[in-house]
């Protein structure tokens, strides 16, 4: 590097390039990974397909995980029942889409998107409401005890999963994508599924919207400050509990959105699907740094890409690859890629 050449006027504020780059390393991880994928995968077209599919998957996981990581950051609450919102979102959304068969079957992009929007809205309303009840009934009494939180939210997950069986029956449901979202288009010789591109767009929109709220609004200020020191936010005159309930509901609704997205991605839904996705979500929030939305975003894209590249290069290693990724990142940065500052341990 050129600026490591001897210089006789070092100022205190000017750190060496390597030092200054350090906080940005995680951000570079995604492009580097995509580049590595390009080198490892022989055909450019398959690389492009895999990259889009990895990003789509990552975006969906991000949508699901963002709420969970914020809930943890804000109130130190770990919700193992988050997967229930994914499943419920998927089932509610699918029911709406099946009911709107005329709209989803029509070869009109507008009608199709309206149907999907209706499904998403219904799913988010239901899971948001569930989140509210979940926070009230299940989480509220066990603030401050991680052990009890894990146990109780796990119990909540079991109950919610069983309720899906009661309401929708035990069998899986097949759901086809709306007419105009089926199939793929060709770009630079690679077949890109339309739906995956849409998923990337939706995920990106959610990320940007979250960032906007967190960076530009008073509510965002309260949330960011609350992640670091909830007590001080209280002492400044903000009711953090109310903010927390809001974040919990929003996070649950986002999980519901993720559930609908995942349903249309897989085109089949089952009751335990939420909990299966949670495994990836946990990996993402751990490597991203519990409590950090940015870290969660980077982590989700990384996991999505690694999963897809690995599945292509060595199918049997797909799931193991993410565990390996998690181990590697935890060895590199034990608190995750974007560690969250906490006022106290």
């Amino acid at each position: 590097m050129s600026n490591t050449a001897p210089s006789h006027a070092p100022t205190i504020t000017r750190l060496p390039l390597a030092e200054r780059l350090k906080p940005w390393l995680p951000v570079l991880l995604v492009p580097v990974l995509i580049l590595l994928g390009f080198l490892a995968i022989p055909a450019t077209s398959s690389w492009l397909t895999l990259t889009v599919s990895g990003l789509a998957m990552g975006m969906m996981i991000f949508v699901i995980a963002s709420g969970m990581t914020l809930v943890f950051g804000l109130m130190d609450v770990i919700n193992f029942g988050h997967g229930a919102f994914i499943s419920f979102g998927a089932f509610v959304g699918t029911s709406v889409l099946l009911a709107l068969g005329a709209m989803t079957g029509a070869p009109s992009l507008l009608l199709n998107l309206l149907a999907v929007a209706g499904a998403v809205l219904a799913a988010m309303v239901v899971t948001g409401g569930m989140g509210w009840a979940f926070e009230r009934v299940i989480v509220r009494p066990v603030y401050g005890s991680h052990l009890k939180q894990i146990l109780v939210t796990m119990g909540g997950l079991i109950v919610a999963e069983q309720l899906i069986y009661v309401i929708w029956g035990g069998h899986e449901i097949v759901i086809a994508r709306p007419e105009t979202l089926k199939g793929a288009f060709t770009f630079a010789g690679a077949a890109l599924e339309k739906y995956r591109v849409l998923a990337v767009a939706v995920g990106l929109a959610v990320f940007l919207a979250l960032r906007l709220v967190l960076r530009r609004t008073k509510l965002g200020l309260i949330v960011r400050a609350g992640v670091e020191n909830p007590e001080m936010v209280q002492a400044m005159g903000y009711n953090i509990t109310r903010v927390f309930v809001g974040v919990f509901v929003a996070g649950s609704a986002l999980a519901g959105l993720g559930g609908v997205m995942w349903a249309l991605y897989q085109e089949v839904i089952t009751a335990p699907m939420g909990n299966e996705i949670m495994i990836l979500v946990f990996i993402v929030v751990i490597i991203g740094g519990l409590g950090s939305v940015e870290g969660c975003f980077i982590g989700a894209l990384t996991v999505g890409l690694v999963q897809n590249y690995a599945a292509f290069l060595e199918p049997k290693l797909a799931l193991i690859s993410n565990i390996a990724l998690m181990v590697a990142i935890l060895m590199w940065r034990p608190m995750g890629m974007v560690p969250v500052v906490k006022a106290k341990g």
Partner: peptide, 9 residues
């Protein structure tokens, strides 16, 4: 006593 500064902000 600990100033309660939000260091991320």
């Amino acid at each position: 006593e600990d100033m309660g500064i939000f260091s991320d902000l």
